[in-house]
Simulated scan of single mutants.
Amino acid sequence: MPGISKKGRQMPASPIRKLVPYAEEAKKKGTQVIHLNIGQPDIKTPKIALDAVRNHNIEVLAYSMTEGSEAYRTKIAAYYEKKDIHVTSNEIIVTTGGSEALSFVMGTIMDADDEIIIPEPFYANYNGFATALGVKVVPIVSKIDDNFALPPISDFEKLITSKTKAILICNPGNPTGYLYSEQEIKQLAELVKKHNLFLIADEVYREFTYDGREHYSILQEDGLEEHAIIVDSVSKRYSMCGARIGCLVSKNKTVVQTALKFAQARLSPPTFAQIASEAALETPQSYFNDVIHEYAERRDILISELQKLPGVRVAIPQGAFYCVVELPVSNSDDFAQWLLEKFEMDGHTVMVAPAAGFYATNGLGTNQIRIAYVLEKPLLIKAVQILGEALKKYSN
Rank of each mutant, 00 (worst) to 15 (best):
Ser395Asn: 13
Ile303Ser: 01
Glu59Val: 05
Tyr295Gly: 05
Ser14Phe: 02
Lys193Gln: 14
Thr209Asn: 08
Ile292Leu: 02
Cys323Pro: 09
Val137Asn: 14
Gly107Thr: 09
Ser304Ala: 15
Ile93Ser: 02
Phe156Arg: 07
Leu150Thr: 01
Glu190Met: 11
Val33Asn: 06
Tyr123Glu: 08
Val137Arg: 08
Ile303Asn: 05
Leu168Gly: 06
Asn396Phe: 06
Ala356Tyr: 15
Gly3Gln: 10
Ala52Gly: 05
Tyr205His: 11
Gln285His: 12
Phe122His: 15
Pro328Cys: 02
Asp300His: 04
Val137Phe: 11
Lys193Cys: 08
Val325Thr: 07
Leu379Thr: 15
Val135Gly: 12
Ala360Cys: 13
Leu133Asp: 09
Glu376Met: 11
Lys393Met: 07
Gly97Ala: 03
Asn367Ile: 08
Ile200Asp: 06
Ile229His: 02
Phe321Glu: 07
Ser154Trp: 12
Ile38Trp: 14
Thr164Leu: 04
Asn147Met: 06
Ser304Asn: 15
Ile58Ser: 03
Pro139Lys: 03
Pro139Ile: 02
Pro354Glu: 01
Met65Pro: 04
Gln385Asp: 10
Phe288Pro: 00
Asp113Asn: 14
Asn289Leu: 11
Lys251Val: 02
Lys6Glu: 09
Lys47Trp: 05
Arg206Gln: 08
Ile85Leu: 01
Tyr373Asp: 11
Glu389Met: 12
Ala78Trp: 03
Asp111Cys: 10
Ala273Asn: 14
Ile140Gln: 12
Tyr79Gln: 04
Ala124Trp: 15
Asp346Ala: 11
Glu100Trp: 11
Glu207Asp: 08
Met345Asp: 13
Leu309Asp: 03
Ile4Tyr: 13
Ile301Pro: 08
Ala201Ser: 11
